[in-house]
Design a protein around this nucleic acid. Structure first.
Length: 470
RNA sequence: GGCCCUGUCGUCUAGCCCGGUCUAGGACAGUUGGUUCUCAUCCAACAAACACGGGUUCAAAUCCCGUCGGGGCUGCCA
């Protein structure tokens, strides 16, 4: 039988990162087995479902390039089926109306907990005339027995049916609840493998009972481990952002895919595309225990992908003003998150900084100004068109300015056993970098100068000298 | 409380099924050093784990039992 899987998010919020992982694994499984991967919007709860959420789900999946087969389906398209099947179950006495009030149910649950009893409702309206009369919610008539299924990832899992009680399947004949709706949907779509988060393990016995009551064959089940927050609990809003689309501003989709793919499944490489993942993907190789969401690892992966981008791709993705291609590697080499590209805005706009930043170590204001004036002369000469000559000229200047032999201990730069020539070079390079970039951290100023050009460089050095005069 | 899932470095894991090759391997993060004007890259090195207790065995991270820990579910949400 042809493999058919789906991802079925409810449109009650943005696409959760865990659901994105679930989508990826379903997608990989389908592609690996030449099957189909579908997207179904599980909008059973009409009150909480929104159009915006649905749009967000589609936006996220599209961004991650997880293409689904066929049209997007909706639970709400299946209304008539739910009602039809619900009536059928009631007629066959496999389901019934429960007329107990919410207060009664709550009191029962409370006393059960106090008496260390399993929380459940075994309804005495089952198999009675009252149970056939519409009015209350609809429950499945559960009988004694064991419910056993073979999880494709975890192996055999067993439940005692009566511990479930006569659980609810619909609020009314027109309003099915989640467990009933998914079973009908999956069954009608002929889903062969239900691959979803571990948080659904306890729904599985209920769903199996519904399949049986309906006389349908059950699909295979596979429960993925959860992606955990730093406190090891399920990731939720209270831990910060969980929306997949929130990662768009900082991360490449390939990097996020790589991260969520490798965090719960081991592949032969740490860095690989989802096409490469298809080759090795096996449900039996999916891990059993939850994995913490390690943002540092995501950052590292992202930086690896950023470095591989061509200048054209990079500029298009981060959307910055036009800069020469040669500037791009200088940026990508030190970029972890896309939005941090603003730290390199000196390539396209004038730097702003405090004049104190121009001071190299414990040098004096005069020394720095003198150094900048010398550099101005160097730049004005034509050595600029050769980076090596430029460096030599700056190195010579460094030597000339010499090593101020005083102590450096009381400044903001750490002292790392620098050689005497290094100290002089610093007096040349440091103020130049600050003048050109306005930052204390940057790529080699000579390379930056080569990119922004002679005129801009002269302007910026003059501006720096003027700052020091005030 | 009840039911279920799970437990190797700080994190993600390899190894576990089929005991010895494991003085437990890799990656991220961390620390140190090299290149260096700063940052980054790159390179080198260091530190860091079998949850605990019994048992089986010549031998246990690997097999068995128990304990403890973590998580999920426990809705007329999904």
């Amino acid at each position: 039988m042809k493999v058919k899987v789906r991802v079925a998010p409810s449109p009650t919020g943005n696409l959760h990162i865990g659901t994105a992982q679930s989508a990826l694994y379903n997608w990989l499984f389908a592609r690996k087995n030449g099957g189909e991967f579908h997207l179904r919007i599980e909008d059973t709860d009409k009150a909480r479902s929104t159009k915006e959420s649905e749009e967000n789900i589609i936006e996220a999946l599209t961004w991650l390039d997880l293409k689904w087969d066929g049209p997007v389906s909706h639970s709400t398209d299946n209304q008539k089926r739910y009602k039809e099947l619900l009536e059928k179950l009631i007629n066959k006495k496999k389901a019934f109306y429960c007329h107990h009030t919410q207060e009664e149910l709550e009191a029962e649950r409370k006393s059960q907990e106090e008496n260390k009893q399993p929380p459940r409702h075994i309804c005495d309206h089952k198999n009675t005339e009252r149970g056939k009369t519409s009015g209350g919610i609809i429950r499945l008539a559960v009988n004694e027995g064991k419910i056993v299924f073979e999880d494709e990832i975890r192996g055999k899992i067993e439940f005692e049916a009566m511990l479930l009680g006569d659980f609810s399947i619909a609020k009314s004949i027109e309003e099915p609840l989640y467990n009933f709706a998914v079973v009908v949907d999956d069954s009608d779509m002929e889903i062969t493998h239900v691959i979803r988060g571990e948080d659904h393990i306890s729904n599985t016995p209920k769903q199996i009972l519904i399949y049986e009551a309906l006389g349908k064959t059950t699909p295979k089940f596979a429960h993925l481990p959860l992606i955990l927050a730093p406190d090891r609990s399920k990731m939720s809003k209270r831990h910060g952002e969980t929306a997949t689309t929130a990662f768009k501003k900082d991360y490449l989709p390939e990097a996020l895919i790589n991260f969520i793919g490798t965090v719960s499944h081991t592949f032969s490489k740490e860095i690989l595309t989802k096409e490469e993942m298809i080759e090795e993907f096996e449900l039996t190789k999916v891990h059993k225990s939850g994995a913490m969401f390690d943002i540092k690892k995501l950052n590292w992966l992202n930086s690896q992908y950023v470095k591989k981008l061509s200048p054209t791709e990079f500029k298009k993705i981060v959307g910055i003003p036009e800069i020469p291609d040669s500037a791009v590697p200088l940026i990508t080499e030190r970029l972890e998150k896309l939005a941090d590209v603003d730290n390199f805005d000196y390539f396209w706009k004038e730097p702003e900084y405090d004049k104190g930043l121009l001071i190299w170590k414990s040098s004096s204001l005069e020394e720095v100004r003198n150094s900048l004036e010398e550099i101005l002369l160097i730049v004005q000469s034509s050595v600029l068109n050769n980076k090596d000559e430029m460096r030599m000229a700056l190195d010579d200047l460094g030597k000339k300015l010499g090593n101020p032999t005083g102590s450096f201990s009381a400044d903001r730069h750490s002292e790392k056993g620098r050689t005497s020539s290094g100290a002089g070079r610093g007096l040349a390079y440091w103020p130049l970098r600050v003048a050109v970039t306005g930052k204390e951290k940057s790529p080699d100023p000579v390379q930056i100068i080569d990119i922004i050009g002679k005129d801009k460089t002269l302007e910026r050095i003059e501006a720096a000298i003027n700052k020091l005069k005030v």
